[in-house]
């Protein structure tokens, strides 16, 4: 090692030292800054403005006519019968969709985990509904349920589920099933993909050890597979639940909330209020209530998960 090489590197070091520490602390923030800036500007700024609408009386087409009205909207919500119908429907819509998507998605993931001939092609095809634009899915399903141009009502009759082929989307007792089925069709993939990925992360040794210990198939599933999947299940169920509760497109296109409000969920109610009645203030207030409910739900689920993970 020659002397002048040493001196060069020594002077080099002086320069580096000053920047080194700061750079190290700042580094992760640097990588995060584009996403944080974007999210703050495009989502949070409008969100704050939007929430403030909930406390104002405002209609989109007379912008001059804005005044602060405090909690008036929220008082109105309290005595709004339609709101509570929509709340109830939101619950059934979300619960039914998530439950079916999850259980069918789990079944599909378990099937895909086992090898069979043509698995690759099958997997590519089975996930396709996920790629179909929502608007188009809604239209297709609206057609399928229509007795004039869709086969489903006729099949239901053959199966004895209906007395005569009519459009269940127009029947207040059954209308909600339409969008739920469409939603299940569209959303199985999401669960199947995430659950399949977690299933594949379970080391084979665990199954082998359990089999050697004499566990039955069901025991292996309930004692190894499920607990291993649980953390992922909680996260995906939470994300999906929140997302589906907010998901208005399918219902809006298929029934418009109709059959006597039987498919009106909160997010479509918000839509109708905003775009049909043009009452943005009230729509925002209902949105705020929905947001608070979903936040509560998510916090609860995450708390449960923490407890659960700690027990394990």
């Amino acid at each position: 090692m020659s002397v002048d090489k040493l001196t060069i590197s020594a002077s080099d070091l002086g320069r580096r030292r000053t920047t080194g520490k700061i750079k190290q602390i700042a580094e992760p923030y640097l990588y995060l800054s584009p996403s944080i800036i974007l999210i703050c500007l495009v989502i949070f700024t409008p969100l704050v403005i939007g929430i403030s609408y909930a406390f104002q009386s405002m209609h989109l087409f007379n912008p001059g006519d804005v005044e602060w009205i405090g909690f008036e909207h929220f008082e109105k919500i309290y005595s709004d019968r339609k709101f509570f119908i929509a709340l109830k429907n939101t619950f059934w819509w979300t619960f039914g969709s998530v439950l079916l998507q999850f259980s069918l998605g789990l079944g599909l993931a378990l099937l895909l985990k086992q090898g069979f001939h043509g698995r690759k092609v099958f997997q590519a095809l089975i996930f396709l509904p996920w790629a179909v634009p929502t608007f188009l899915s809604a239209l297709i399903w609206a057609w399928l349920f229509n007795p004039v141009i869709g086969p489903l009502p006729h099949w239901f009759v053959s199966l004895g589920m209906l007395d005569e082929p009519y459009n269940i989307l127009a029947d207040p007792d059954f209308a909600l099933f339409g969008p739920i089925i469409a939603n299940v069709w569209f959303g199985i993939s999401f669960f199947a993909i995430t659950l399949l990925a977690s299933l594949q992360s379970i080391p084979d040794e665990m199954y082998e050890a359990a089999a050697i210990d004499g566990a039955s198939k069901w025991q292996i599933f309930s004692k190894i597979t499920l607990p291993f999947l649980a953390p992922m299940i909680v996260i995906t169920v939470m994300l999906r639940t929140v997302w589906i509760a907010n998901f208005a497109d399918l219902i809006y296109v298929m029934t418009g909330g109709g059959a006597a409000n039987s498919t009106q969920i909160l997010s479509t109610y918000i839509f109708t209020t905003a775009f049909k009645k043009l009452d943005f203030g009230y729509a925002s207030a209902v949105s705020v209530v929905l947001l608070v409910l979903l936040l509560l739900f998510a916090t609860l689920l995450l708390k449960m998960r923490q407890k659960f993970v700690r027990v394990n």
């Binding site: 989502i43 700024t45 409008p46 969100l47 403005i49 939007g50 929430i51 609408y53 989109l60 994300l239 929140v242 997302w243 907010n246 208005a248 909160l266 997010s267 918000i270 839509f271 905003a274 943005f280 729509a283 925002s284 949105s287 705020v288 929905l290 947001l291 979903l294 936040l295 998510a298």
Partner: peptide, 11 residues
């Protein structure tokens, strides 16, 4: 990921 999109559409 949690709020109804409508709340921010007008803003």
């Amino acid at each position: 990921q949690m709020f109804p999109l409508l709340i921010i559409i007008a803003p």
